[in-house]
Design a protein around this nucleic acid. Structure first.
Length: 270
DNA sequence: ATGTCGACCCTCGGTCGA
């Protein structure tokens, strides 16, 4: 089974790319981020015609996530739980979880659009990112107790290591690379997750995003911020993983490319 | 690093978010 994550940067602007990629790449489950539309505006018919079930968690104008899958999930939950004591609700559509039946059990797949957090000096944005990461850590810890295959896939807006960006000096003060951000990401990993791409390959660079500006793609000024984190039960079933870099050279590309993991489990036959 | 892009609206251009 192939499970992929892709920040599509506007699903309505990218629907032709999405359908072409689904046909070429044939993923079984896709975690999308930044669909940038409400649920009713998602180009559902085109994706269903390509052979996918569609679950969305959208909002007007920005953010928004979706899960596309060859079979219908058994359960879907929208939104990342708040922490005990959190007062205000989070109105950003950044998280959805789906449970699928596979031969011998179930897998859980979450699509994650972690807050960007820039500018890091902003009194709201960077604290919101760190708080969201604390919520993700709590959620992840609770889910690990289930001892099931769990895949947390998405745009983490985290550059894990210096070799995951084209110039660490340029990114030193960026919310994607600040020590607090990397520490929070490591705390989640150290609960017991495997970074699928790094389990499959230690090759660098392994970028997943190139800015539209300044000719970043042509100069290979990229960063690695799209990740699949795997519970032990999922990592045990990982066969390989890869970055579908060629998609960045298509017409009207997203600034992110898909990242995929291949696992040796299959959907249960009903 | 800044050669851009998508979406929105008191809509054709400025603003926001990335």
């Amino acid at each position: 089974m192939k499970i992929a994550t892709w920040n599509i940067n506007g699903v309505r602007a990218r629907i032709d790319n999405l359908v072409a990629w689904l046909r070429d790449s044939a993923p079984d489950i896709v975690c999308l981020q930044e669909i940038k539309c409400q649920d009713e505006a998602f180009p559902r018919a085109e994706v269903e015609a390509a052979g996918y079930h569609v679950e969305t968690h959208g909002q007007k104008g920005f953010n928004g996530v979706a899960i596309l899958s060859r079979v219908r999930p058994d359960e879907v939950t929208r939104g990342l739980p708040l922490l005990d004591g959190d007062g205000e609700a989070d109105d950003h559509a950044r998280f959805m979880e789906a449970v699928f039946s596979v031969e011998g059990g179930a897998i859980r797949v979450c699509t994650i659009y972690l807050p960007n957090g820039n500018p890091a000096s902003d009194p709201v944005k960077f604290p919101y990112k760190l708080k969201w990461m604390a919520r993700l850590e709590a959620f992840a810890q609770a889910r690990l107790a289930l001892e099931e295959p769990l895949i947390l896939a998405g745009d983490y807006n985290v550059i894990p290591e210096p070799h995951d960006c084209w110039d660490p000096k340029v990114w030193a003060n960026d919310a994607l690379f600040l020590p607090e951000t990397r520490d929070a990401f490591r705390r989640i990993e150290h609960l017991g997750f495997t970074d699928a791409l790094r389990a499959a390959s230690d090759a660098v660079p392994a970028y997943t995003f190139w800015d539209y500006q300044a000719g970043a793609w042509q100069k290979n000024w990229g960063i690695r911020i799209d990740h699949l984190l795997l519970s032990a039960e999922a990592a045990d079933r990982l066969v390989s993983a890869g970055i579908e870099k060629h998609v960045r050279s298509w017409e009207k590309p997203s600034d992110h490319v898909p990242v995929a993991g291949y696992f040796n489990f299959e959907f249960a036959v009903p």
